[in-house]
């Protein structure tokens, strides 16, 4: 019990150390795509909220996949819980 807690604490310290001091060595993300969205987003999609213009304008196909995931979850839960009531 004590050993397990010590292991958890050690993992916590190591990951914290990596996150705090390792974040300086990561190169900055490329800014070309960001500049394109910020400059062209409102003019091309007509939405002021940039998150919405990316979520439903440029990456609408991604949203379609998310919709399929939600409908799969709902149909799975309906299938699992409706069978129990009939028996």
């Amino acid at each position: 019990m004590k050993l397990k807690l010590l292991g958890e604490f050690l993992i916590f310290v190591v990951f914290g150390f990596v996150l705090i001091f390792g974040i300086d060595f990561i190169p900055p993300p490329p800014s070309g795509l960001k500049n394109y969205f910020v400059c062209q987003g409102v003019r091309q999609t007509g939405a002021i909220n940039l998150v919405s213009s990316i979520y439903l304008g440029y990456r609408a196909f991604d949203t379609l996949g998310e919709t399929i995931v939600l409908i799969l979850v709902v149909s799975g839960i309906v299938m699992l819980l409706e069978k129990k009531d009939k028996e």
Binding site: T45, G46, A47, S52, S53, L56, G57, A60, T63, T67, L70, I71, V73, V74
Partner: peptide, 19 residues
């Protein structure tokens, strides 16, 4: 405004709330 995005927001909102 924004044509398409307004209607997609309505559709997704109804769908998520129903689900």
């Amino acid at each position: 405004s924004a044509g398409f995005i307004f209607f997609l927001n309505l559709i997704i909102g109804l769908k998520v709330s129903a689900g």
